[in-house]
Simulated assay, not measured.
Amino acid sequence: MAHSAERTPTLTPGGHGRTHSAADDDVSKRLLDSAATLSYDPATEIDWDAPLEPGHYGLNPEWSTLYGTALWSGMTEEQRVVLTRHEVGSIMATGIWFEMILQQMVLRDQYLKDPASAEFRFALTEIADECRHSIMFARACEKMGVPQYRPNQLVAQAGRAYKALARGELAYGGILVAEEVLDVMQRDWMRGENVLDIVRGTSRIHVVEESRHMKFARQEIRERLRGAGTLRRRNAAFGIAAGAYVIVTSMVHPSVYKAAGLDVARALAEARASEHRRAMMRTSSRHLMAFLAENGLLTGPSTKLYRRIHML
């Protein structure tokens, strides 16, 4: 297909006009080709019956919220193993929660669009991937003996509002935030020789398939913002940052510290004050921040929110 610069006007479900070019469609077509050749079924790719390796962590110790703190230094090795398994379980549970939000936003965005278009077909392919990922994470938590940690009631209601109200670049911006931050973490976990095989395997699957989802989200954001004015970009920037704040602060449930036999109040205080933790968060957000800045989505108010959660 020729890469024409001609753009055909389309209409989003929210009623905002947008332009869709042949080049936009080419992105979705390439992603569909990738999905056809490189996708996984966690039900058969993961050995769910294999015993957990004794002494192996749930995630690389460097990604633990307490790594490098005085509390971490005083913990037994058994406590560290238990803590990291519960931390990764909490992150997986947060992933399930946000994947439920993601699927609803994408479905709403594609409502009544042309089912023959590459964009529509990849959007549904992404939803199918997310369904498998959620089941995969739930099974991994069950295998590790970790409860399904849930966001608190206030955060749960905030998520309900976000999935109901977010449109266009705001919806895809929230999706990109969640996927980018987790992607950097999981790239380390999948290579961790002292990390549980079940975590390495699920991370590998998620990294490969989410790379397509991130490309799709970036393309949708660029497309929705073509010709957008300053006010729209500022509003989107703040909304995406607010979504990031909720996601990042909900990743590790306070109860993980209780599961490891730690004083919860002290653990929370040391995790919040950890310079190592802050550095790791900035590392995991570097590419995301560059993309947001490139697209006019890194403003003064949004920057303040990102700094509060150490993404900048």
Rank of each mutant, 00 (worst) to 15 (best):
G243S: 08
L225S: 03
N235D: 14
A236N: 06
Q219S: 09
H213S: 03
R232I: 11
I240F: 04
A236C: 06
V246C: 09
F238N: 15
G239T: 06
Y245A: 11
G243E: 03
F238D: 15
I247V: 11
A237V: 04
V246W: 13
A237F: 08
T230N: 13
V248E: 04
Y245E: 15
A217F: 03
F238C: 13
F238E: 15
V246H: 10
A244F: 09
F216D: 01
I240L: 06
H213N: 00
E220T: 06
E223P: 06
E209M: 13
A236Q: 05
K215E: 08
R222V: 01
F238I: 14
K215G: 00
A244W: 09
H213G: 01
R234D: 08
E210P: 02
E223M: 12
F238A: 14
R232D: 14
A228T: 01
F238S: 14
V208G: 00
G243Q: 03
G229T: 09
E210D: 01
Q219K: 15
A237E: 10
I221S: 00
R224W: 08
R226G: 09
G243D: 10
K215C: 02
R222E: 03
A244P: 03
F216M: 05
T230W: 11
F216N: 05
I247M: 06
Q219R: 14
G229P: 06
R218I: 00
F238M: 12
Q219N: 11
E223Y: 06
A242C: 12
R224C: 10
E223H: 06
R218F: 00
A241W: 13
R226T: 02
G229Y: 07
Q219T: 07
V246S: 12
I247L: 09
G227E: 07
T230P: 07
I247R: 10
A236E: 00
E209A: 09
R226V: 03
